[in-house]
Computed example of a mutant assay.
Amino acid sequence: MEKGEKIIHVVHSFYPVVGGIEKAVYEVAKRQSKKYDVTIITSSQVPNGKDDLHVVRIRSVRPFGMPDLTIPLIIPDLSEAKVVHYHSQNSFFSYRILSKHDNNVFTIMALNSLKSHPNPVIKILSPIYSQILIKRVLKYSKRLIVKNERDKVMLEEIYGKESYIIPDGVDDMFFTVPKTSSFKEKIGGDYVLYIGRLHPLKGVNVLIKASKKINSKVVFIGPGDVNKYEKIAQKEGVKDKCIFMNYVDDLTKIAAIDSSKAVIIPSISDYVEAFSIVLSEAWSREKTVIASSVGSLPYRISNGIDGILVRPNDPEILAETVNQVVENDINLGKEGRRKVLNWDNVTEMLEKVYEE
């Protein structure tokens, strides 16, 4: 690609909303904008933020408040773009805007994962919804990108389509900031750490229940309804063991990872673990990760070598595993660090795909 050519990213959610897809698009677009003319097309349902990129929020509606069901009421003209990069085949927003452009690139995320959604209505309707969307995605996309081996294998076996694996990255500071144990003093003792949205599909309820038998405190960092989960912790009798801190900056997050005994990813659905940037962030700090065997996680973690996998939605097993790691001071994070890329690596990989 020539300097100054136009790249458009189409994504149903973006900053200031905090999440994996928002983070990935932002970090890549920020780096691409140093060389190319980059525009983010997202929904008017996304709140206005302090945009340091060219962000266009088109008028949209969002039935039932579900981000994936965001419906654009205006279809933008994308004809001037050299590359149009769409994100998430589960997104009706991307589906509606997808056009017969000569150089469409589509990132597939958590393929066929809606069938594992705990909402019975979504689970029942998912085969029809998913097939309608993926059919159009495969028809009009020149190149397909996945974030992990799971989706690559499924694309080949189910749809006969080849794809490029390009994982998400982490910020350079996760490699370079000196290690610290200062956060342990703030918490007042040993703790294990959860990082992510406070949401049932992320297994927050499971970890709260598990904390009854976990022999350390449990710290929760991430956006969401803190009051709701504090009440759940109080009901379970573990209010003093569960510490909720809401969203924190990256330096605070790094300090929290460094001082923790392990990072826990207790998700209960394939749908919410298309990649897990949290896993990469923990690995970059050489921290042991205990994760549910859902989504991309069993494809990224070599069980017992660079992390530990547990059965999802099982507080007893989770607590038992956490205690074994803490009591035996098990550290598998050094092996995991070798798998982590930074966002510059990811952006370079994308550029090669765009040019092929």
Rank of each mutant, 00 (worst) to 15 (best):
P76A: 00
P76R: 01
P76Y: 02
P76K: 02
D77M: 09
L78Q: 07
L78I: 11
S79Q: 08
S79I: 07
S79E: 13
S79T: 10
E80F: 05
A81L: 13
K82F: 11
K82A: 06
V83Q: 00
V83D: 02
V83M: 06
V84E: 02
H85N: 09
H85T: 02
Y86D: 02
H87P: 03
H87K: 04
H87E: 01
S88R: 13
S88C: 13
Q89A: 08
N90F: 14
N90Y: 15
S91D: 08
F92P: 07
F92D: 06
F92H: 07
F93N: 01
F93A: 00
F93W: 03
S94C: 15
S94I: 08
S94T: 03
S94A: 15
Y95F: 12
Y95S: 00
Y95C: 03
R96Q: 10
R96M: 10
I97N: 00
L98N: 01
L98E: 00
S99K: 12
K100S: 14
K100N: 14
K100P: 13
D102C: 12
D102P: 15
D102Y: 11
N103F: 12
N103E: 13
N103A: 13
N104S: 07
V105A: 01
V105I: 15
V105R: 07
F106Y: 14
T107F: 05
I108Y: 06
I108G: 06
I108V: 14
M109P: 09
M109C: 15
M109Q: 15
M109D: 14
A110H: 09
A110R: 12
L111P: 03
L111G: 01
L111T: 07
N112S: 11
S113E: 11
L114P: 03
K115Q: 10
K115I: 14
S116R: 11
H117E: 06
P118L: 12
P118S: 07
N119Q: 07
N119L: 11
P120I: 05
V121F: 15
V121E: 06
V121P: 12
I122G: 09
I122E: 11
I122W: 13
K123W: 03
I124R: 12
L125Y: 02
L125R: 09
L125D: 03
S126E: 05
S126K: 04
P127D: 02
P127S: 05
P127G: 04
P127W: 10
P127M: 12
I128A: 13
I128T: 09
I128N: 04
Y129V: 07
Y129N: 07
Y129W: 14
Q131E: 15
I132F: 06
I132L: 11
I134D: 01
I134F: 10
I134K: 01
K135P: 02
K135V: 01
K135F: 05
K135D: 11
L138R: 09
K139A: 09
K139V: 04
K139M: 11
K139T: 10
K139R: 12
Y140N: 14
S141H: 08
K142R: 15
K142P: 08
R143E: 14
L144T: 04
L144F: 07
L144S: 10
I145V: 15
V146F: 08
K147G: 07
K147P: 01
K147C: 03
N148W: 11
E149W: 13
E149A: 10
E149S: 13
E149T: 14
